[in-house]
Nucleic acid binder design. Structure first.
Lengths: 161, 161
DNA sequence: GATTTACAGGACCGAAATGGTCCGATATAG
DNA sequence: CTATATCGGACCATTTCGGTCCTGTAAATC
């Protein structure tokens, strides 16, 4: 478990496609839907949210569409998640000032925050550019994949809420 | 987002308490509920699932209760998640043989698997012993927390399903 | 062996989140 | 002015989640 929402999944798919095709041209929701075999309304919804989150830039009107707001290297998976479902927070209290009734008695508040940080940093380290790089996929299921966490994080845009 | 269920959150709290008090004695659901200020039925449910997952050992009958099935160092957070909500799988298709209709056309199947692996490995690296270690909490929100990923993973029990 | 204690397993239900669709408003190109 | 696309939100069916409760079984005590 610890699952991303489907919307976020779609977002990753769509952004990978935009990154792969080069960010030269902006593409509209219809084209992207056709390319990914997803329903147009869904694609539209996802792209809108990504634009609100600062991951995409939008062009309205005829011949409008979407394009990456930054180079693919600088857009992290954490930023995509942030735009579509809010900042990475494995528990409610990890997201910020908590309204948790166990505030005082909770013995794991601090370590859980660190744990959350580990996950968030890990996802901040993987960029859109990585996702379309065959060398990244070649890491497979091996524990070598943790090597990438030694790199400089993508440190991309942060989404609003 | 990317949130753990509350049940899993509770599980971490309960296991941390068991680990802290030493695994010498087994404690029952009522005592653990009292110590954590959680409802007894909820605590009971969580403990049962943790026992099914092999994280806890249970003793039935009078003077029964639960105790850690392994040393705290060898129980990873990933194992706890595995026992309570299934293996870490950030997307549906990351969990195993997918029934995803986009199987053929999906361009990010492989990189998403790697991404899933990164998260899973990161959580496999943090053990119950870490959660009750002040030095771990001291890492705070800094990116130093990624240092711990260089260590040998906890490699703990794997939960069924 | 009767009784009490405590886990095992699952049914159950209300509340909340999710996935997906659709609509009116607004901005832009031609 | 018209066609095209995004913007912002409402809307709803379905699923999931959080929590409770009940029946059965194992173990200890007296």
């Amino acid at each position: 478990m610890l699952r991303l929402s489907k919307l976020t999944d779609y977002g990753i798919v769509l952004l990978a496609r935009l990154a792969r095709d080069g960010s030269r041209e902006s593409r509209n929701a219809r084209e992207l839907a056709a390319g990914t075999e997803l329903p147009v309304p869904v694609v539209s919804k996802v792209l809108k949210q990504l634009a609100r989150g600062g991951v995409l830039e939008s062009q309205r009107g005829a011949r409008g569409g979407y394009s990456l707001a930054l180079p693919a290297q600088r857009i992290s998976v954490a930023a995509v998640i942030g735009a579509l479902e809010g900042p990475v927070a494995i528990t409610e209290c990890a997201s910020g000032p908590s309204v948790c009734s166990h505030e005082g008695t909770c013995a794991v508040r601090d370590p859980v925050h660190v744990l959350n940080n580990v996950v968030r940093e890990a996802l901040a380290t993987v960029s859109l550019a990585d996702l379309i790089d065959p060398a990244f996929s070649a890491l497979g299921d091996t524990s070598e994949s943790l090597q990438i966490l030694g790199r400089t994080p993508a440190r991309a845009v942060v989404a609003p809420e």
